Simulated assay, not measured.
Amino acid sequence: MAAAAAAKKVLVVYAHQSPGSFNAAVKDAAVEVLTAQGCTVEVSDLYVMKFKAAATAEDITGEVKDPEHFRYAEETKLAWEEGKLSADIKEEHRKLTEADLVIFQFPMYWFTVPAILKGWIDRVLTLGFAYTQEKRYSQGIFKDKKTMLSFTTGSQESMFSADGINGDMNVTLWPLQNGILHYCGFQVLAPQIFWAPSHVPSEARSSMLEAWRARLQGLLGEAPLSFTPSDSFDGDKGFQLKPEVQEQHAGKEFGPTVGTHLGLRIPPNSQIKAGV
Results as ranks from 00 to 15, higher is better:
K135R: 10
K135Q: 14
R136L: 08
Y137L: 11
Y137Q: 04
Y137P: 02
Y137H: 06
S138I: 12
S138W: 07
S138E: 13
Q139K: 12
Q139I: 06
Q139S: 10
G140R: 03
G140Q: 08
G140C: 13
I141R: 01
F142A: 11
F142E: 01
K143W: 09
K143A: 07
K143Q: 12
K143M: 08
D144C: 01
K145Y: 04
K145E: 05
K145M: 08
K145N: 06
K145T: 09
K146T: 07
T147L: 12
T147R: 14
M148A: 09
M148K: 01
M148H: 02
M148P: 04
M148W: 08
L149T: 00
L149C: 10
S150N: 09
S150W: 10
S150Q: 14
S150C: 11
S150M: 14
F151V: 12
F151W: 01
F151L: 10
F151P: 00
F151R: 00
T152Y: 02
T153F: 02
T153M: 00
T153L: 02
T153R: 00
T153W: 01
T153N: 00
G154Q: 12
G154N: 11
G154V: 11
S155V: 12
S155H: 09
Q156H: 11
E157N: 05
E157L: 01
S158A: 14
S158F: 14
S158L: 12
S158E: 15
M159Y: 02
M159I: 08
F160V: 08
F160K: 00
F160M: 04
F160E: 00
S161N: 03
S161A: 15
S161V: 11
A162L: 04
A162E: 13
A162V: 07
A162M: 08
D163S: 12
G164L: 10
I165A: 06
N166D: 02
G167S: 09
G167F: 12
G167L: 11
G167R: 09
G167D: 02
D168P: 08
D168G: 06
D168A: 09
D168R: 06
M169W: 09
M169I: 12
M169E: 07
M169P: 04
N170T: 03
N170E: 01
N170S: 13
N170D: 12
T172H: 14
T172N: 13
L173A: 03
L173P: 00
W174M: 14
W174Y: 15
W174R: 01
W174D: 15
P175Q: 05
P175E: 15
P175N: 02
P175H: 02
L176I: 07
L176H: 05
L176W: 07
L176T: 05
L176P: 05
L176V: 05
Q177T: 07
Q177F: 13
Q177H: 04
Q177N: 08
Q177G: 09
N178D: 15
N178M: 13
G179S: 14
G179Q: 03
G179A: 13
G179T: 10
